[in-house]
Design a protein around this nucleic acid. Structure first.
Lengths: 334, 334
DNA sequence: TTGAAAGCGCTAACAT
DNA sequence: ATGTTAGCGCTTTCAA
């Protein structure tokens, strides 16, 4: 066992209260005493017991990151890890501890209620995959500091942050316009895929503004897998008139798309420009390397960290926003 | 503030000690009293304060996962996240809390010393990227429960777990032999790449045993990137006699390799079998889908969790082993 | 400017 | 089988 505050007090010839005050930088301590105490600390190689401190203060200085984890999550969702890293950066800087907790969506409310009740954490960063009406109510009525990562798809009181996929779509479209494209097609994910839908939305907005049409037969919906991207691309190529650019809703679709163009002997970007979203996992590896509209998910974690710390201080703070800005990365495919 | 143990005791008409015993399942409590207490708990919606509990018990029930995180880690190293998920599963099951902490290699020893000193954690799971001689000494002399993920490349007292890359190489080679291959080439990473080297080692061992030769010109060393894989494959194809199988040291190399074979019009697997390691990120997506020797990194996290919990109980436990077994996944490329 | 003392909520040794 | 009581290490109020 290391030295305790008592040992320090004894050696310094003061009370434990004084030692505590020195540690916490109270103004009402004379230089002299402070020096004595600090010397004693050094001599004893004293490190305050964080747990005792938190207990006495009735605060944990802990944030729990809650999400549905499990086998395969690391590979399927590296973004989540990236967010986690950003979050950690901010929390560690402010001497907060980051706890990671896997929880099934159904058990989330119960878990958080208990964790908040027993003061295991001061706040929660919650992945949108585990939210529910019940959770919303709990957080709202108990005023539990939290921030949800991802836009809830139902009406709620949650504080949340999300990517602005609509804006991302706009950026992609604008870039194509700048490249002189006259006719653009979009190949997307499932009809219910919100991300894909919002990206399409952004694309459409910009194209309309510039009187570039995107006829119905140039919008495809399939699945977020390579094969589907391949098929959708082929379908688009069947049209009498070909578009001069393809916007792919994500990397997987883009991969299939590039394969299809390759098989048809269509040159990228000379005959067809291709752009997609997110810089992972293929965009930098495919031939040609793909232009993308990317999201800095690490920064999203940083933002989440800042907000949750603010929420803890001022619980009336309310945030619902698309805070993380997408950026255009131009590569060979456009 | 929620109800405390005192409130429960008062309502149940017992002492706090009795309440504590009921909570912790002591044998020496009559059914009757236990029921009374439990009813009181329910009535008050009592949840024990975990921090008080841990503090009183002088144990944190916490494991800290220490690694060098930062922007890009999530994408560059999804394995780490996968391990983390496995670790969380085991710890949560035993009511342990998992804390994630980014630390530079240089600051690691200092951080762990302090965390251990102040009993912030009962044990540490440490990524090999942040270990050092100093850390080894600290953990050894202070008998701090830990487990290192990854084989340290210097002499040490660490407890560690790692993947058995040698065995993985053996499995790959055996599979090729079973497929009737007579002549095998290996295209690997940099000369100093330990993982690549061990995989090659395993391949060579098996081939020798079966009198299949792997001549010097069939072993290439390059880089773990697609382009390098492409070039190395082309080099091998330049030989007068072609091998009938290629072992690629990893997914990136394999990607280049497949491209090269494709460009040369060589059919996989009919004219050339291809096998690689790890099931990420391309093996399931390339055409043809690649046979791989895979490592269950999630399970590695699970193992790490089990070991660290054991270490905490019995500090004399000593582990240095390649604990996670590779498995063969046969797909179209062989 | 300093110190005494009462917590913080729970555990565990010891007594009954 | 149950209760008494002394901690766990630090904070914080209040008095000196």
């Amino acid at each position: 066992m290391g030295a305790t505050i008592k040992d320090v007090a004894k050696l310094a010839g003061t009370s434990t209260a004084t030692v505590s005050k020195v540690m916490n930088g109270s103004y009402s301590i004379s230089q002299e005493t402070a020096d004595k105490v600090r010397k004693a600390m050094e001599e004893l190689d004293y490190h305050p017991n964080l747990r005792a401190k938190n207990f006495a203060r009735q605060s944990a200085r802990t944030i729990i990151f809650v999400a549905e984890l499990g086998k395969g999550t690391g590979f399927a969702n590296p973004q989540m890890f990236e967010i986690l890293c950003g979050l950690e950066e901010v929390l560690a800087q402010k001497d907060y501890t980051l706890v990671v907790r896997n929880i099934a969506a159904g058990d989330c409310a119960e878990f958080i209620r208990n964790a908040a009740d027993t003061k295991q954490a001061d706040g929660f960063v919650i992945h949108a995959s585990v939210i529910s009406q019940a959770l919303d109510e709990l957080l709202f009525t108990h005023e539990i500091p939290h921030i949800v990562i991802g836009n809830p798809n139902f009406n709620s009181h949650f504080c949340w942050l999300d990517i602005d996929n609509r804006l991302a779509g706009e950026l992609a479209a604008k870039h194509l316009l700048e490249r002189g494209c006259q006719s653009v097609a979009f190949i997307g994910g499932k009809p219910e895929d919100q991300i894909s839908a919002r990206r399409l939305d952004g694309v459409l907005t910009v194209l309309k503004e510039h009187d570039v049409l995107l006829p119905r037969e140039y919008v495809k919906k399939g699945e977020s897998v390579c094969d589907s991207g391949y098929r959708m691309t082929m379908q688009i190529l069947e049209n009498r008139r070909r578009p001069d650019a393809l916007v792919c809703a994500d990397n997987y679709i883009a991969y299939g798309c590039v394969n299809a163009l390759h098989d048809r002997g269509i040159l990228i970007p000379e005959e067809m420009k291709v752009i997609t979203f997110d810089d992972f996992p293929f965009s930098q590896i495919l031939k040609p390397m793909l232009s993308v509209v990317n999201i800095d998910v690490y920064d999203m974690g940083v933002q989440a960290g800042k907000y949750i710390l603010q929420k803890i201080k001022r619980s009336n703070l309310y945030v619902q926003s698309h805070i993380t800005f997408p950026t255009l990365i131009i590569r060979e495919s456009t």
